[in-house]
Design a protein around this nucleic acid. Structure first.
Lengths: 219, 219
DNA sequence: GTACCATCAACTGTTAACAGACCAACTGTA
DNA sequence: TACAGTTGGTCTGTTAACAGTTGATGGTAC
């Protein structure tokens, strides 16, 4: 039963490592693996039906994403966030997204960018009555799009490295608090600010949005 | 010969994985492993005298740090940077350090912070006549200190995740270009700006510093 | 009951070996 | 010579097994 890839047909199946990564990420950010919990490699590999070697590769990645914290003897545990850390995470997030909107404002032609952002906001609006989880997904997708549209791969990568921590913050604070940040209007404001091309205005809008978001979570 | 830890004596010996990580990072950022080069796992594990399993854990981490890029069939190669990517990296770096100085400016008591920064600048001044490598190290240490002093662990972690890319940028541009950024005066300006507590001024100073640095590298 | 020592179970660090996919060279046939 | 099929090599994905340390458990002496 020793592995192999398996491209088979155009479908590009995910490797076991990637599957485990997704599964663990979901388990952690959904709270199924509660914060502070010690993770035992043999237990997880048994649960996920993969070998420890493959699992350990995934764990390293999660560790770097900030979802796991390493204890004394290499013991890993699910990271525990307090109010300060949530504010810290959102401060970094604000700095990154602030760069994103500034970059977008400086583009000579913003029409296609605005179009993409508007459709992302539309998705949010459409999900306004959907499940809380879906609303959060569409919200994160909007902000991820903000970074992606800059064309700055490093920026996008940094943001995505932070995404796990953001999700943990939401989980830690409780979803009912998080949905207070899902206002479609606020996101319209951000798009509008970018449309004007006024970098300072756009930056202020994002910073304020993030401040409010962090405050809502830790309040 | 199958492994184990080996604390031995208080000295906290590094695990093989960490040793490999350091070795590879150095090899890449020093140019010993030239950009674009394909990495073969068996070759590396042979060279570093460790098994593939252990090596692969280190490779995942380097991949996430942006030093390696994954090709079609999982083939890894040393990341190749062009001018745009260097500018992008420094834009993100600027955003992070901009947050750092702003945070420091908002501290009620900055005396100990200023003291730490001054001593970091002193180290740079002392290294002014040293080897180019040492000057670069002391420069990076100054900027890392900037982030560390904020007490924002997430910020520090994000910056350190970018550090490898920064080192690659320097290597790619050539050390002779990079040393143009090692001006002690410029760093004094940054500290002075923080000392005033004027967040806007400090932010402007850092952004300009980063702009010049990026321009020097890609010029 | 408490202190000390031996034994043992549990967990991580590390390694060697196996399985499948892709690529290039080689060979046989018109 | 040109081309198709085969074969061998190389590399990654994955796994099972081994080594060594740490912490706990149980038993014995005082």
């Amino acid at each position: 039963m020793a592995g192999a890839t398996a491209p088979l047909l155009g479908l590009e199946k995910k490797s076991l490592r990637e599957q485990a990564l997704s599964a663990l990420r979901t388990a952690i950010t959904s709270g199924e693996l509660e914060p502070g919990r010690h993770l035992v490699e043999t237990e997880l590999s048994d649960m996920l039906q993969i070998s420890r070697g493959t699992l350990r590769e995934a764990l390293r990645q999660l560790e770097q994403e900030g979802l796991l914290s390493a204890g004394p003897r290499g013991r890993l545990s699910v990271r525990h966030l307090d109010g300060k850390e949530i504010r810290d995470i959102f401060a970094v997030r604000a700095a990154l997204e602030s760069l994103a909107v500034r970059t977008l404002c400086e583009l000579p032609d913003r029409t296609s960018v605005i179009a993409s952002l508007r459709s992302a906001v539309d998705v949010m609006a459409a999900a306004a009555e959907a499940s809380l989880e879906e609303r959060i997904e569409s919200d994160l997708e909007f902000h991820r799009t903000l970074c992606r549209l800059t064309g700055n791969e490093t920026l996008l990568h940094s943001w995505e490295s932070l995404e796990g921590s953001i999700r943990m913050s939401i989980m830690f604070a409780g979803i009912e608090r998080a949905v207070k940040n899902m206002s479609v209007d606020r996101h319209h404001d951000i798009v509008a600010a970018i449309e004007t091309g006024n970098a300072t205005l756009a930056r202020t809008t994002i910073l304020e949005h993030m401040d409010v978001a962090a405050a809502n979570l830790v309040a």
